[in-house]
Amino acid sequence: MHTARFPSPSWAGRTSSTAIRLNAVALALNSRPRKTLAWKTPGEALSEQLRLLTDSVATTP
């Protein structure tokens, strides 16, 4: 059985250096504490809000 082979795009299966740099910048910004979040990182603030939400749902009769 013969199957046709099509060339894949040059970017397929590889992460470009630009994407790697952008991910590094995003990680640096998202792991920085914010004054508006009471000096918590966005991840810490989100985790706290989700915990509060699940605690309030669990205690609702």
Rank of each mutant, 00 (worst) to 15 (best):
G13T: 12
G13F: 12
T15Q: 08
S16F: 01
S16N: 04
S16Y: 00
T18G: 04
T18L: 13
A19F: 08
R21Q: 15
L22R: 15
L22Q: 13
L22S: 09
N23V: 05
N23P: 02
N23R: 13
A24S: 13
A24M: 10
V25S: 04
V25E: 11
V25W: 06
A26Y: 11
L27K: 15
L27G: 07
A28K: 14
L29T: 09
N30T: 03
N30K: 04
N30Y: 05
S31L: 06
S31Q: 13
S31K: 08
S31F: 01
R32M: 10
P33E: 00
P33N: 01
P33Q: 01
R34A: 05
R34T: 00
L37M: 10
A38G: 06
A38M: 08
A38F: 09
K40Y: 03
T41V: 02
E44N: 05
E44Y: 03
E44F: 03
E44S: 12
A45E: 05
A45C: 03
E48L: 05
E48G: 01
E48K: 02
Q49M: 15
Q49R: 15
L50M: 04
L50N: 01
R51K: 11
L52N: 14
L53G: 08
T54D: 12
S56M: 09
A58Y: 09
A58P: 03
A58F: 14
T59G: 06
